[in-house]
Design a protein around this nucleic acid. Structure first.
Lengths: 230, 230
DNA sequence: CGCTAAGAAAGTGTATGCAATCTCCATGCC
DNA sequence: GGCATGGAGATTGCATACACTTTCTTAGCG
């Protein structure tokens, strides 16, 4: 799109760069290991190198790109091991959030969680994948907030964001919605019981299953990913 | 430029700025909420605004400063709640690392952990606080590495770094060394037994205790944070 | 023919200048 | 007298220019 950049307007130029480059990375337009030339990117988006540099800094902090001093930046190479490690962390973090939620959620939060969860059963029956995905995000967010721990919340949201590119295929799997709901149900039940240990375990298992599905996808998707890194 | 900056040499200018400004924040020279003027900082360190800006970006990603678009940066305000939340996260993360270590450490890693731990007993007897602090860092690093999970390792190291400013006083407390060693001993024993649950609990408790000591200090230190340090 | 080394090209890191935005204060109006 | 509005100063955001580092090429030597 060689058009002027008023089309992408919103926020500062740096934010636009972060989103633009970040999107290209997570969608696979820019492949792992690919060199990110500041001048080229600047020309590509019709801005100067300054905001590009800053954006690369942000992306580096987000773990999407790697920066070597004086040697430029490349799209972060996520090995199968590291990906597994991230899912593992995610499972643990979700487990912690669920456990804390079971112990700390207010009555109102519990009510809302239960209500939303029950409402989502309808989406499952309708196989409304889009809507369920949206609900799913909100469901997990409730768990993160319910933990009443700002830092755990941060860690979890960040990790979840970093995993986003590798989750997009999970709902393609047949029967995923029903299974997901059942797992949610187990978590909710445990939380309402105030059983932290059970909630934690259920949440960990929930992520683990998603992880397996996604890993398969990632493996199939990443392999042909060109000549690994040259 | 007047004076040459070969005096501060080491790494890139940005890294120096990150360290310099970061140090001033964690040592209290720059107080929470204080405005961080780019021009002033640049003048203060005799560099241009560019590396200062980039450094502020890094520090923002590290959570040490907050940045408002077009409105400058301020030293991050860490509330007592958020601090507690960070320690809580740290306890959980350490717990996970210890649990995984118990389950995954290689024979060599276990040997090394045990050996170093036993060696550190000498430092306790000598009350060699400096040396023990150094060993302590290494001890925990072993646990993080022993978890064999790169992302957990990352999360843990990052969180530990963010907490660093609030831990400095912990060893001033009398008898802290002996207590620390005993807690380490419990963790090591559990790991060598391969008892993940026990190792995790011991590690969580270990951090919790440090947390209480540090929180007390933080509370006492932050309030009157007048012009000490200057 | 292979290896070392010097130089050129490319690219990152830093400095400076300009434009846009925000803050604050003063002036005018209600 | 209080509040809104406009403008000047200050500060951030972006662009451009320069310096230093790395790397690839090529010429010279063993």
């Amino acid at each position: 799109m060689s058009g002027k950049r008023s089309l992408i307007r919103s926020g500062t130029t740096v934010d636009q760069m972060v989103r633009a480059i970040g999107d290209r990375i997570v969608t696979g337009v820019l492949r792992p290991g690919e060199k990110l030339d500041e001048a080229s990117l600047a020309a590509r988006f019709e801005v100067s190198r300054t905001p590009v540099r800053e954006a690369l800094g942000h992306l580096s902090a987000m773990g999407l790109v790697e920066r070597r001093p004086n040697r430029g930046a490349i799209v972060a190479v996520v090995t199968q091991d590291h990906l597994a490690s991230m899912f593992e962390s995610m499972a643990e973090l979700e487990g912690i959030c669920a456990r804390f939620s079971a112990e700390r959620m207010t009555a109102g939060e519990r009510r809302a969680l239960e209500a939303e969860h029950q409402a989502s059963a309808r989406l499952v029956r309708l196989s409304a994948e889009e809507d369920y995905e949206h609900f799913n995000t909100e469901f997990h967010s409730r768990l993160y907030r319910g933990a009443h721990s700002t830092h755990i919340h941060e860690l979890t949201v960040t990790t979840r964001g970093r995993l986003a590119p590798f989750r997009r295929a999970q709902f393609r799997l047949a029967g995923r919605l029903t299974k997901s709901w059942q797992e949610h149900d187990e978590i909710v039940t445990a939380i309402l019981r105030g059983d932290g240990a059970a909630a934690g375990k259920a949440a960990r298992d929930h992520v683990s299953i998603v992880s397996e599905a996604s890993s398969v996808f990632a493996a199939a998707d990443c392999k042909p990913l060109g000549r690994n890194v040259a």
